[in-house]
C-alpha cells in the first residue's frame, strides 16, 4: 500500500495527491490528512495536485471532499498545481469546484494564507571558519 505523506511547516500542512489515486488510497489520504490536522492543530492546508495528469469527476470529488472535511475542522484549504489542461477538462466535465480556493503556485498559496517567507538567520558555510577565519 502506498504511503501518503503529509508534511508540516509551522502551522501549515502540505499534502501531495499522488498520480493514479484509487478509492482505497483516496480514503487513506483523507484519513491521514485529518489525523495530522487534529494532531498539529494546523490552520492551513495546501494540497498539491500537480502530479495528476488526468482529473476526472472521481478525482475532482476526492479533492472537494478532502478540502471540505479539512475546512470543517477549521482550516483554510488551498489547492495548488492546477494546470491549464486540468482546468479546461474540469470545466468541460461540468465540475465547477466553486468552494475550492486555488493558487497559482506555492508562493501564491502562502500569500493567500497570510504567510510570508522571512529569512532570519545568516547561513554559515561549514568551511568558512577554516579557510577564512575573519569572515562571519
Amino acid at each position: 500500500m502506498k504511503y501518503i505523506q503529509v508534511l508540516k511547516l509551522g502551522p501549515i500542512l502540505f499534502l501531495t495527491i499522488p498520480e493514479n489515486l484509487n478509492d482505497a488510497l483516496a480514503q487513506s489520504l483523507e484519513e491521514a490528512l485529518l489525523e495530522q490536522q487534529a494532531l498539529t492543530k494546523a490552520d492551513a492546508i495546501v494540497i498539491d495536485i500537480s502530479s495528476l495528469e488526468i482529473i476526472d469527476s472521481f478525482m475532482a470529488r476526492v479533492i472537494s471532499e478532502t478540502a471540505n472535511a479539512s475546512s470543517l475542522m477549521d482550516a483554510k484549504v488551498i489547492i495548488v498545481g492546477m494546470s491549464p489542461v486540468a482546468t479546461i477538462t474540469l470545466l468541460e466535465l461540468g465540475m465547477r469546484m466553486e468552494h475550492i480556493e486555488t493558487a497559482l503556485d506555492l508562493e501564491a498559496a502562502l500569500d493567500k494564507l497570510g504567510y510570508a517567507l522571512v529569512k532570519t538567520k545568516k547561513t554559515i558555510h561549514p568551511l568558512d571558519s577554516l579557510t577564512e577565519p575573519n569572515k562571519k
Partner: peptide, 12 residues
C-alpha cells in the same frame, strides 16, 4: 464567463 471561471479555477 467560462474564461473568467477558468482563470479563477487556476488561482488567478
Amino acid at each position: 464567463l467560462k474564461l473568467t471561471e477558468a482563470i479563477r479555477l487556476m488561482g488567478g
